[in-house]
């Protein structure tokens, strides 16, 4: 068990960061990570020996997230993602940093789930392009074009600021 812990635990900070970026809710994010780790432990013997555990873990977490999203949309309830939690994270930061932080999260919300995941897994969690292709089950060339599109959308959302609706009214 110590050996498994030594392989899995170094990835927990990254998994928590990815889960939090997707859900923006401290408890819900840690529930998702817990769920992911429990699945990983249950399927430990089925993991690919040659595969990299990092990509495997992030793929499990993303799949759990997607099935939760589907379940939620079937039930017709909206995700209760409150900003309160996000604000708490940067309570001590100076106002300008806090503003950038908020804009950054708002821009992320302009992206589809897949775009968000590509941007976060490649740009923040440093997954290789090959691992990303495996995680999404698409060819590497397609990863490249989707990554470019996600970047473009994110950049534009950051440039327009966090309140595009208000801008339109003006």
């Amino acid at each position: 068990m110590d050996e498994i812990a030594a392989i899995l635990e170094p990835h927990i900070p990254g998994l928590r960061r990815y889960a939090w970026a997707l859900l923006r809710d401290r408890e819900a994010a840690d529930d998702l990570v817990q769920d992911c780790l429990e699945h990983a432990l249950a399927g430990w013997h089925m993991r690919r020996r040659d595969g990299n555990p990092k990509a495997w873990l992030f793929t499990i977490l993303r799949n759990l997230h997607i099935s939760e999203l589907r379940r939620r949309s079937r039930r017709g309830t909206r995700a209760d993602v409150e900003e309160a939690d996000s604000a708490e994270a940067f309570q001590d930061a100076d106002p300008e940093r806090r503003l950038i932080f908020r804009e950054c999260l708002a821009a992320l919300d302009c992206l589809s789930e897949e775009q968000k995941s590509i941007l976060l897994l490649v740009g923040v969690e440093d997954l290789s392009y090959a691992d990303m292709a495996k995680a999404l089950d698409i060819p590497i060339g397609t990863v490249m074009s989707r990554l470019s599109r996600a970047r473009e959308r994110f950049r534009q959302a950051m440039e327009t600021g966090s309140a595009p609706q208000l801008r339109r009214v003006k």
Binding site: R17, A89, C104
Partner: peptide, 11 residues
């Protein structure tokens, strides 16, 4: 910016 904003969580 995205990396910096999310770094607190991994820390």
């Amino acid at each position: 910016t995205l990396r910096d904003s999310l770094q607190f969580k991994a820390a």
